[in-house]
Design a protein around this nucleic acid. Structure first.
Length: 257
DNA sequence: ATGGTTGGTGCCCAA
């Protein structure tokens, strides 16, 4: 089973890129973030024509998550639940065969110690509780998306410049650490990877040309599933296409039907 | 250098 995640930063604008990439890579599952579409605007028919079911949870203007799949989804759920009221559309889950799959768009956090930063930390704490419960029910759990946290300094092009800043701050890394301690495994790091491999580059200036990036798009797998992971890589190419997203796809393959 | 770029909305906000 081939699984991918991509923050497309507006599916309206990026639809041609997504279709081109789907055609080329033929994943079984593709998680999308920042679709920025209302549910009634989602181009489900366009994906159905290409053999993909779509499930989505969107809102006007911001956020929005979706899952494209070769198989129809089962047990679709959205939001963190468990009393964490959140009108922002950032979480979508579905089951495919024995796999429980989560598509996440973690809050950005704006600036350390801002209101949005506190919301991000509370959101991640609530997510930990949700995933702990899901791991009890689903030995094969995969949580993918834009985590808006660079796990380690090697995931940052200039760790000294970014030290303590949002996306890299100790509290954010500790919150991600509580997800990894469940345990889950950052499947990208199960394999030898090229140095300076990132998944996001700022639109501003010459960040992409200089490879001034961060690895903030992640795939966390349960222990049993991580043992079935065969490859994980980041496809940098779409960042060089005309009018790109600021993020690129992360792809993993699992020994699963 | 607290900069600049993109997308969605609507005459700024989020990232």
């Amino acid at each position: 089973m081939k699984v991918a995640t991509w923050n497309v930063n507006s599916l309206r604008v990026r639809l041609p890129h997504v279709l081109k990439w789907l055609e080329r890579e033929q994943p079984d599952l593709l998680a999308l973030q920042e679709t920025k579409l209302r549910d009634e605007e989602f181009p489900a028919d366009t994906f159905a024509d290409r053999g993909y079911s779509a499930t989505f949870s969107g809102q006007a203007g911001y956020n929005g998550v979706a899952i494209l799949s070769r198989q129809p989804p089962q047990d679709v759920a959205h939001g963190i639940g468990a009393g964490f009221a959140d009108e922002q559309r950032r979480v979508l889950a579905a089951t495919f065969g024995g796999l429980r799959f989560y598509c996440l768009y973690v809050p950005n956090g704006d600036r350390v110690d801002s209101d949005k930063y506190r919301y991000k930390l509370e959101w991640l704490a609530a997510l930990r509780e949700l995933l702990a419960a899901e791991l009890e029910r689903h030995p094969l759990l995969l949580v993918v998306g834009d985590f808006n946290v660079a796990p380690e300094d090697r995931d940052v092009y200039d760790p000294r410049a970014w030290a303590g800043k949002v996306l890299c701050s100790p509290k954010e890394r500790a919150a991600l650490g509580t997800l990894l301690a469940l345990p889950t495994h950052d499947v990208f790091r199960l394999f030898q990877q090229p140095e300076k491999t990132y998944s996001w580059w700022d639109y501003r200036g010459i960040a992409f040309r200089r490879n001034w990036g961060l690895r903030i798009d992640l795939m966390l797998a349960s222990s049993q599933l991580s043992q079935m992971c065969q490859t994980c890589r980041i496809d940098k190419e779409p960042r060089g296409w005309e009018r790109p997203s600021d993020h690129v796809p992360v792809i993993a393959e699992f020994a699963l039907a």
